[in-house]
Design a protein around this nucleic acid. Structure first.
Length: 139
RNA sequence: GCGGAAGGCUGGAUGAUCGCUGCGCGGUUUGCGUUCUGCGUAGGCUGCGGGGAGGAAAGUCCGGACUCCAGAAAGAGACGGUGCCGGGUAACACCCGGGCGGGGCAACCCGACGGACAGCGCCACAGAAAUGAAACCACCUUCCUUCGUGGAAGGAAAGGGUGAAACGGUGGAGUAAGAGCCCACCGCGCCGCUGGUAACAGCGGCGGCAAGGCAAGCCCCACCGGGAGCAAUGCCAAAUAGGGACCGCGUGCCUGUCAGGUCGCAAGGCAUGGCGGCGGAGCUUCUUUCGCUCCAGCAGGUCCGGGUUGGCAGCUGUAGCCCUGACGGUAACGGCAGGGUCAGAGGAAUGAUCAUCCACAAGGGGCGACCCUUCGGACAGGAUCCGGCUUAUAGGCCUUCCGCGCAA
């Protein structure tokens, strides 16, 4: 209802005066519409359960890995969207700190039916594979 | 036992590991302030504790609370809504009880249920005729006749046919044939009495019956309603700008008073400003009364352009809500007494995975209770908050009642 057609999720971004990220486990969530749009123009790879988009941030904007989740109304009603976002958050929490690269913004896009239905282990493997594809092509 | 009717409850459970969120109490760290081994405050990280979606959170269809809008009250008008009666309620289009009409053997269910002698409008097709009634076939009387019958004039409106609907129905008396022409009962209308708060019902009398339907067509009657909505609204900070165009109204009057200025010997005059009065303009659709704003440039209207779209409050505890008990009431509900309090996060948390159990569905086995395998969990996620309505909903459980069958 109140939020617009596309649900983006996240908490406040950590300010620049925050202490530098010590471990790679610190994930920051994207909140601004601008940041999502920039990521959508970057590299992307589609998997059965999701679409992964990534872009390298301009230097000095923020530290660490940042991640956003988006599930449009195409995914389904509010229950289906929330469930898809939760599963995307969960696989990102498990995989991204190890396999993601510092200084990048990632966006995970939910897909109809499959995001909520595929086995969790397969989703995790697919995210790792997608990261490999994106970063493998880079030098 | 089979078939049905009404009402209510529930909406997977347990455990493990890893996470989310905001609250309380700590630890640590950074900034700021200070009366400086400390304290306060704002934030980051982190530990522990106890909270963390629904019966519909949904549709946003009604009713409110709350907030804002220089208008408020009364009357009138427009527009919208409601529509048998009585009660409940903060209020309602909701709920309860009753009446009337319809359906069902019954339990029970359904009902836009005021007015068609205020007016306007519409009634397709079919049919002779769709509303000041009329007369196609058939009926009866008289006359003419080419005697096959056909035709003309008249009577009457019962029969046939058409239609959703044709001037009330059944029976009798009556007649040339017929007809409320007359009679009985039913229906309808009017009047009276009785019962009921009322809707309405019952009884009695009178009237031969006045001519249909549609008001989910306009309309009439009664009652109700100002508009916009939490992205309301208030505060703080930052940034940009103190814009441009068009339109509107307009520089009022006073023998009132005060102030300083100026002219004059003086009485006094002149202009300026403040206050007051009159007048004018604007403020809800209009009028009246009161009120508010303005009278010199306008905090009047419309449009264009530019900027911010951050933080805090509103924000969850009350017309509260939930549980228990007795009381009043047929009931909805009411006032009591005791106890509890239950998300407040705003790009928005309540999850993921695994195991066991519980349902569902399919297949197989067994006379059967049941067992095995596979699949796999209804509708659906708070966003200011309440009261309703409506719609979606796998499965399970409980209570009461009705009909039929069987047994006693």
């Amino acid at each position: 209802m109140a939020p617009p057609e596309t649900d983006l999720i996240g908490t406040r971004a950590v300010g620049d005066n925050a202490p530098a990220v010590l471990s790679c486990s610190a994930l920051t969530t994207l909140t601004k519409r601008r940041e999502f749009q920039r990521a959508s123009r970057g590299k992307r790879v589609a998997m059965p359960g999701f679409i992964l988009q990534t872009v390298r941030r301009p230097a000095g904007e923020a530290n660490g890995i940042r991640i956003g989740y988006t599930c449009s109304k195409k995914v389904g009603n509010a229950v289906a969207r929330n469930r898809a976002k939760r599963r995307l958050r969960e696989i990102a929490r498990h995989i991204l700190p190890g396999a993601g690269r510092d200084g990048h913004d990632y966006v995970l896009v939910g897909r109809r039916e499959t995001t909520a239905a595929l086995p969790f282990s397969l989703m995790q493997a697919d995210l790792a594979k997608a990261l490999g594809i994106l970063h493998g092509k880079r030098s």
